[in-house]
Amino acid sequence: MDILLVEDDPETALYVTEGLQKLGQAVHWATTGKDGICQARAGHYALMIVDRMLPGMDGLSMVRMLRAESCDTPVLMLTTMSGLDDRVDGLNAGADDYLTKPFAMSELAARVNAIVRRTSRNGTSTRLKAGSLEMDLLERTVSREGRQVELQPQEFKLLEYLMQNAGRTITRMMLLENVWNLDFDPGTNIVESHMSRLRSKIDRGHSTEMIHTVRGHGYVVSP
């Protein structure tokens, strides 16, 4: 998978490039917004990672311009921690996700995977399946090996997000943003508490766990 990285800070660029290369991705590096646009027009990238602050044309303008040219390559935007509204601005400009510096490689990798998967998924299926777990999005029901599992609305939302990204690690922050719509980290063990309830419900009476903890990184549902 080819990824275009538009980042003016060599330190960050090196960190991202090395990290993604270890995961088997090919990373192309541009240092300015203009260069980024040229490369985006020339090549076929599966994803663009764009720093918000760039010399000359900034990341927001760059994404806006590409979107205006109806370029639909998914974009993950990076920013230094500053703006309360940065996330909203970034998403409004046409970015698909937003990540604040400094970030852990595992967080970036998880988001890259989620974006690529989300954008490549064609059609909107009303049923999700992961291993022996099945979810009906219209009926709002979940079953494991054919047996119905009763879930609270919050638990359903949590499982839905995990199952949409089955096989991929989902970080704590991604859950807070996508399941509870929080743009801040409440700082307590909210995710852990909800997760333990969800786990006990879907794993009850089964010998294998469906949701695994990836230590220090997040959670993953077996595909």
Binding site: Q154, W180, P186, N189, S193, S196
Partner: peptide, 13 residues
């Protein structure tokens, strides 16, 4: 109510 949805399990724990 949102706060309740988010915090109920935490409070229980």
């Amino acid at each position: 109510k949102s706060a309740h949805d988010i915090y109920a399990p935490v409070m229980e724990d």
